[in-house]
Write a protein that binds this DNA or RNA. Structure first.
Length: 683
RNA sequence: GCGCCUGUAGCUCAGUCAGGAUAGAGCGUCGCACUCCGGAUGCGAAGGCCGCAGGUUCGACUCCUGCCAGGCGCACCA
C-alpha cells in the first residue's frame, strides 16, 4: 500500500509541472505544527517561487486551483496558508479506515514473517571479562539489543555477536590478584561463591592501586600477561576460570533485561586458531601495510594511514599492527575478526554451546573443538562501541573497506554512543569517594580500574525493590511471587527506557533519583498506558461478552475504502447491540467535529509508525522509538480522561474511540517490544 | 597543539541532518480534577536574547565564519 504522503507529494509534483512547466523532484512533505494547517503541508511553492522569481503565494493559488479540480486519494480539501504553504486536509474517515486495515493486515503478516535477504551482524556488549558490568555497559547492550530488534522487525536476518577480549591486561590484573594477593589456584577460584563478578570488581581496583607503588607486582604482571598469551601454566588456568565465570555473570545480568547473544567470539581464538596469521598474510599484500625499519616504530608492522582521508591531521597517523616483539595489537586482532565476520577469511572456528536460556535460545562460543555452524560471512554489520573508540574503529572500518573486493565503504558501521557518567551528587550518595577535582566537574566518568561506577545488577536490584513497593501498595491482593514477577517487568522498563530516551551523542549524567522515578517520561509510564487499554478491553469482555478483536471487526464490518467490501476477515458478530457497524461517512463526520481533534491527532500519530521505525534504523537512533512510544502513551492517557468508551452511550462515538484504543494498543505494544520493554497484564 | 562532539526553561532533555507558520516534553515549584473504563493519571500557571558576535536568506534554534565554555580522542593499553 502506497503511503498517503507519497500520493500527496506526487499530486503536487504533477500540479507543478502542469502549472509552471518546471519539472521538480518529489516535493518535501511536512507535518504541520497545528491542526488548522491541515494534515500535511507542502512548502513547494516557497522554494519554487524563489527559483522562478514569482510571489510564492500567487504560485500556491495556481497550484491549489489545479489540485482542487482533481481527485487526490485520501484528500478532502486543499488550502493555502502562511507565506504559501499548500495544506492538505485528509478525509478522516477514509484515513482511519485505511489505518485499521493496514494494522490488521500487518498483524497477520508479522506472525508468519521470516527473515529474508543478506545477513547482518550486530556486535554489542563486549565487556572486558574481568569485573562486573556497570551501567555504562548496560547502555551499550540495551542500544545494541534495540538495534537488533529494529532490524528483525524489518525482516533483516541478524546475528548477534559478543566479542570477548580475554587476552588483555585487564584479565591479567585480576589473575594477578587471585594468584599473588590471595594465593588462590584455578580450583579455588572456581569454588568461590557468587557474585563472582563483584569480587573481581573489588580485586581489580585493589590490584590497580597497588601496581602504582609496587614494583615487584608490576614485574609479576608482565609474567602473568605472557603466561596468558601462551595459554600455559597455572596463571593461564586461573585466567580461563575468571573469563568463563565473568562471562556467565555478564550474560546473566543481560538476560535480566531480555538480552541474548548468538555467538561469543574469543579474542584468544583469533590468535590460536590462526585467524590473525591468515588476516596478516592478506594485509601484507596491501599497499597500506609495511614493515618499519627505522624510527619510533622500528621493528613493527604498520598500517599506513598518512594521506588517508580522515587521518591526515594526525601527527603520527600510521598505526602499529604487530609490535616489535611479534605480538599483534588489539586493533590487528579486531581487524582479523571483522574480516572473518564479513566473509573475507575462511572460517577456522568450531563452535560449542555456551549456554541455553530459559526459552531455549542457544548462545554459542568459538573454539578449537565442536560443531560447524554457519556463523560469520555477513554482508553488512555494526559494532556498538562507545565513542571514545572512534579513532580505533575508524581504522578497523578502513581495513574492512580495503579488504573488500568490491571496495565498499559502507558495509561496516561503528554504532557510536556517548558514555554514562555519574553526577557528583549521585556518586556521593552512593558513597563513592571523589577527588576534589572530580567534585568540580559536571559529571564523573565511570572507571572499572578505579572501581568507580554503579554496577548493573545493583541498579536492577534497586529498581526491582522500588517497583515491588509500588506494586504492593496498589495491588495488596497479589501473592509474593506475582508481585515480584511484576516488579521485574517494571524494573526492565525503567532501566531500558532510561538508557534509550537520550540520543546517543548525549553523555548520560546518571542521576539515581531520576532513574528510580516511575512517573513522567519513563518506561513504567508506557506500561501503564498499555495496561489501561487492556483493562478497558477486559472490562468490555466481562460486560458485553465480546472480545476486542470481535468488537473491532463489528465496527469495521461495512465497506472499506473505495467502496468495495474490505478484507474477508472482517465480519460482524453479535455484540448485543452495544456496538454497530460504522460507515465511512459516520466516522468522517465524527472525526471532523472540533471536539474530536484529539482523536484525529492520535490517528495521524499512529499512521507514522513505519516511518518512525525507518528513521530510527537509518539514523541508528533508538531514542526516536522511545520518544514515539512516549507520545503514543501520552496521547492515550489524555484521551482516557476525555473520551470514555464503555461509558459512552452514543454508539458512533463509542465505536470510533474503540478503534483508536485498539490501534493504539497494537502500536504501543509493538514500539515497546522494539525497545525490549515487556507489557504487563496489570500493574 | 590538532581532530571530533556538545551548549535550548531552575534541572534533565527533544527539535538542528532536509531553514519556514505561536520553540516542545519530563522533572521540580504553585494551583486544580472525575461517586464515573485504574491518580504510576489528567488539566492549568509560572519559567526561554535557543552560549556570544558576524554573515547568507523574503525568512535562521536550524546553514557558513569567528569566538567563548564543557567533554572526549590523538599508545608497541584494550
Amino acid at each position: 500500500m502506497t503511503d498517503l504522503r507519497e500520493i500527496v507529494a506526487a499530486a503536487v509534483q504533477e500540479a507543478v509541472v502542469a502549472v509552471t512547466g518546471e519539472s521538480i523532484p518529489l516535493p518535501q512533505v511536512e507535518d504541520p505544527p497545528r491542526p488548522e494547517f491541515g494534515d500535511l503541508a507542502i512548502p513547494a511553492a516557497l522554494e519554487l517561487g524563489r527559483k522562478l522569481g514569482r510571489p510564492p503565494r500567487q504560485l500556491a493559488e495556481e497550484l491549489v486551483a489545479y489540485l482542487r479540480d482533481r481527485e487526490t486519494e485520501g484528500v478532502r480539501r486543499w488550502e493555502i496558508a502562511g507565506p504559501g504553504y499548500l495544506n492538505a486536509f485528509f478525509d478522516r474517515g477514509y484515513v482511519l479506515r485505511r489505518l485499521m486495515d493496514s494494522l490488521l493486515q500487518s498483524q497477520s503478516e508479522s506472525e508468519s514473517a521470516t527473515a529474508m535477504g543478506p545477513k547482518v551482524v550486530v556486535e554489542h556488549t563486549s565487556i572486558n571479562p574481568n569485573k562486573a558490568a556497570h551501567i555504562g555497559h548496560l547502555r551499550n547492550s540495551v542500544l545494541g539489543d534495540s538495534l537488533v530488534r529494529l532490524l528483525r522487525h524489518q525482516g533483516v536476518p541478524v546475528e548477534v555477536h559478543n566479542y570477548i577480549d580475554d587476552t588483555g591486561v585487564q584479565v591479567a590484573d585480576v589473575v594477578l590478584g587471585f594468584a599473588d594477593l590471595m594465593g588462590l589456584d584455578a580450583e579455588a577460584v572456581r569454588a568461590m561463591p557468587d557474585p563472582f563478578d563483584y569480587a573481581c570488581w573489588d580485586l581489580y581496583t585493589e590490584v590497580t592501586a597497588r601496581l602504582k607503588s609496587d614494583e615487584r607486582l608490576a614485574a609479576r604482571r608482565r609474567e602473568v600477561l605472557l603466561a596468558l598469551e601462551r595459554g600455559t601454566g597455572t596463571e593461564a588456568e586461573v585466567g580461563t576460570v575468571v573469563v568463563e565465570r565473568i562471562i556467565r555473570r555478564h550474560l546473566a545480568t543481560m538476560a535480566r533485561l531480555g538480552i541474548e547473544y548468538d555467538l561469543l567470539v574469543h579474542e584468544a581464538d583469533i590468535i590460536s586458531m590462526d585467524l590473525w596469521s591468515a588476516a596478516f598474510e592478506r594485509l601484507k599484500a596491501s599497499e597500506y601495510v609495511y614493515f618499519a625499519d627505522e624510527g619510533d616504530h622500528a621493528g613493527c608492522w604498520m598500517m599506513r594511514l598518512s594521506g588517508v582521508a580522515g587521518f591526515e591531521d594526525l601527527e603520527q597517523p600510521d598505526k602499529v599492527l604487530v609490535r616489535s616483539n611479534g605480538a599483534a595489537t588489539y586493533v590487528a586482532k579486531d581487524i582479523a575478526y571483522h574480516m572473518w565476520r564479513y566473509g573475507e577469511l575462511e572460517n577456522p572456528f568450531s563452535y560449542r554451546e555456551f549456554d541455553v536460556s530459559a526459552d531455549g535460545h542457544v548462545t554459542w562460543q568459538s573454539g578449537a573443538e565442536g560443531e560447524q555452524m554457519p556463523f560469520g560471512g555477513a554482508d553488512r554489520g555494526a559494532s556498538v562501541i562507545d565513542v571514545r573508540q572512534e579513532y580505533l574503529q575508524s581504522i578497523v572500518a578502513f581495513a574492512v573497506a580495503i579488504m573488500d573486493p568490491d571496495g565498499r565503504t559502507d558495509r561496516h558501521t561503528h554504532f557510536d554512543y556517548e558514555m554514562v557518567a555519574l553526577t557528583p551528587k549521585t556518586a556521593k550518595t552512593l558513597g563513592i569517594p571523589l577527588t576534589s577535582e572530580d567534585q568540580g566537574r559536571p559529571f564523573v566518568e565511570m572507571s572499572g580500574r578505579r572501581g568507580l561506577g554503579v554496577k548493573a545488577d545493583d541498579l536492577l536490584n534497586v529498581l526491582e525493590e522500588r517497583a515491588g513497593e509500588e506494586v504492593g501498595k496498589r495491588n495488596p491482593d497479589l501473592s509474593d511471587g506475582e508481585r515480584k514477577a511484576l516488579a521485574v517487568q517494571i524494573a526492565i522498563a525503567a532501566a531500558r527506557y532510561f538508557l534509550v530516551k537520550f540520543n546517543r551523542k548525549t553523555v548520560i549524567a546518571f542521576d539515581l533519583d531520576e532513574a528510580l522515578n516511575f512517573e513522567g517520561e519513563t518506561g513504567p509510564y508506557l506500561q501503564y498506558a498499555a495496561v489501561r487499554t487492556s483493562s478497558i478491553f477486559e472490562l468490555m469482555r466481562q460486560r458485553w461478552g465480546v472480545s476486542v478483536e470481535d468488537a473491532v471487526r463489528t465496527v469495521l464490518s461495512t465497506q472499506g475504502p473505495g467502496g468495495e467490501s474490505s478484507s474477508g476477515a472482517v465480519s460482524a458478530v453479535d455484540v448485543k447491540g452495544e456496538l454497530e457497524p460504522l460507515s465511512l461517512d459516520q466516522i468522517r463526520d465524527l472525526l471532523e467535529e472540533e471536539e474530536n481533534d484529539m482523536l484525529w491527532v492520535l490517528a495521524l500519530q499512529l499512521g507514522r509508525f513505519d516511518r518512525v521505525v525507518d528513521l530510527a534504523v537509518q539514523s541508528s537512533e533508538v531514542s526516536v522509538i522511545a520518544k514515539y512510544a512516549f507520545t503514543l502513551a501520552q496521547d492515550f492517557n489524555r484521551l482516557y480522561h476525555r473520551y470514555p468508551i464503555l461509558q459512552e452511550d452514543d454508539r458512533t462515538k463509542r465505536g470510533v474511540r474503540l478503534l483508536l484504543a485498539y490501534a493504539l494498543r497494537l502500536r504501543l505494544q509493538q514500539a515497546m517490544s522494539l525497545l525490549g520493554i515487556p507489557v504487563p497484564e496489570r500493574m
